[in-house]
Design a protein around this nucleic acid. Sequence first.
DNA 1: ATACCAATTTGACCTAAGTCAATTCAACTT
DNA 2: AAGTTGAATTGACTTAGGTCAAATTGGTAT
Lengths: 187, 187
Amino acid sequence: MTLNPNNIFAENEERQLLALFELIGKKRTIEAADIIVLEGQKVDFFWIVLSGCFRAFRWFQNEEVTVGFSFKGDFDTSPFAYIHGTPTKECIEALQDSEILVVRKNEFEKYFLRNPIVSTLTEKLLSNYIEILTYRSIESKILTAEQRYLKLLQRQPKEASLIPLKYMASYLGISKERLSRIRKKIS
Amino acid sequence: MTLNPNNIFAENEERQLLALFELIGKKRTIEAADIIVLEGQKVDFFWIVLSGCFRAFRWFQNEEVTVGFSFKGDFDTSPFAYIHGTPTKECIEALQDSEILVVRKNEFEKYFLRNPIVSTLTEKLLSNYIEILTYRSIESKILTAEQRYLKLLQRQPKEASLIPLKYMASYLGISKERLSRIRKKIS
DNA sequence: ATACCAATTTGACCTAAGTCAATTCAACTT
DNA sequence: AAGTTGAATTGACTTAGGTCAAATTGGTAT
């Protein structure tokens, strides 16, 4: 999961949340290529990206498939493993030197009863991510690879420029050769 | 969202939940082709499918795209609208005469504090659905249409047989002609 | 600077899947 | 039972995108 809470919280709510997480979270520095979540491990924390970027990927039939990226301001974790307490099926690695704010699940849950924003945060983030995945799935059914890439560039031009071509291609579900040609065509 | 809680709850937990929902939910009969969730409306309830089946779809660029089905035993709702209280972007219709158990959100939430299974239910269902969507997205990137259709047949042979070809094709992200040919080939 | 390795690009060719139009099939209606 | 209508099938053709191999570029360790 990787999403920016901008869309779903009012500004004052977001400030309140950030203040809490700065209190109970721990700032950490991650070097490029470091793995922050490893397939098979439990994930009892989430994090907020302060700088840099991350890539989540899974293995499917001996292929590495990129399932998402996260950037400055995004909340990130491996959602099923986080909620269920089971080993995760994905790896998440830093693509650049990054700074994050790590929040432990049990620390976070202490604030459930006290704060109505906190108590509904998880459900809101999860359902928002479902909305994003649903929309992506529709786009992958209807749009061509080129159209999907153009949409991505429109939505996150700065962020997209941080991603190496091969990972972007895998995320879009196309070959690296195709993405290279799409780039050439639209440039 | 449409999912069967079998995978994520122990039997006794599931029995407990069902008992609660039979208490606070209302049984309703839905006729084939009835719309149970209409795009633009609020969705302050979820339901459990007792019999029959449902199809969720959205409009994208003047095309109707099928985003999911639900069958006997599944929990179903429009998750973002349910959690955020905003108008939904999808329609959900019955594909057959069906029976469901409707549970209102505010009724359900009364049991949050009393019962630990209830209080974590929403998060578990949401994150499980995220897992399913993630997996589907990977499969749509790596597998051919035929392979995806075969997997679907393996997983839900009975349920798949209930779905008209054109909706199944839309769900798989292929043309109806292609699915027709795939069926012919593998029969 | 040189050498090395990985990332990207390019070319040639192939295949899965789409499109369009015509036909058949199935389910209702009157 | 015949007529109507939408669903599914089939045929002919087109196209987006994949694959494989070779060439180029770019970054980095020596």
